[in-house]
């Protein structure tokens, strides 16, 4: 299972890094899965909404604030998106 999931997860991660760079001018090299969005990457609640709107293109469905309630790190976002994509498929 892990092997099939891996490329997907990488793609999601790359797409997320693109979004973070495009919307917030965060240097790609600064982004790692463990980084905390709010503390390390200086993202605020308004940014988080913008990010969700942008990520909507990726998942093709509306993202609800609740989907990201427990999200703290870059990896959390990737995992949440992965679950959403699985549910959608």
């Amino acid at each position: 299972m892990e092997i099939i999931d891996l490329p997907d997860r990488d793609e999601i991660y790359t797409r997320l890094v693109d979004v973070l760079e495009e919307l917030f001018e965060i240097d790609r090299s600064e982004i790692t899965p463990e980084k905390n969005l709010y503390e390390d990457l200086d993202i605020d609640s308004i940014d988080a909404v913008d990010m969700m709107i942008k990520l909507k293109d990726l998942t093709g469905q509306r993202l609800e604030p609740d989907d990201f309630k427990s999200v703290r790190t870059v990896q959390d976002v990737v995992e949440s998106l992965e679950i959403l994509l699985k549910e959608a498929s």
Binding site: E22, L23, F24, E25, I46, D47, D50
Partner: peptide, 8 residues
Amino acid sequence: VPTSLKAR
């Protein structure tokens, strides 16, 4: 320019 960047 996206609003998120303008705000920054």
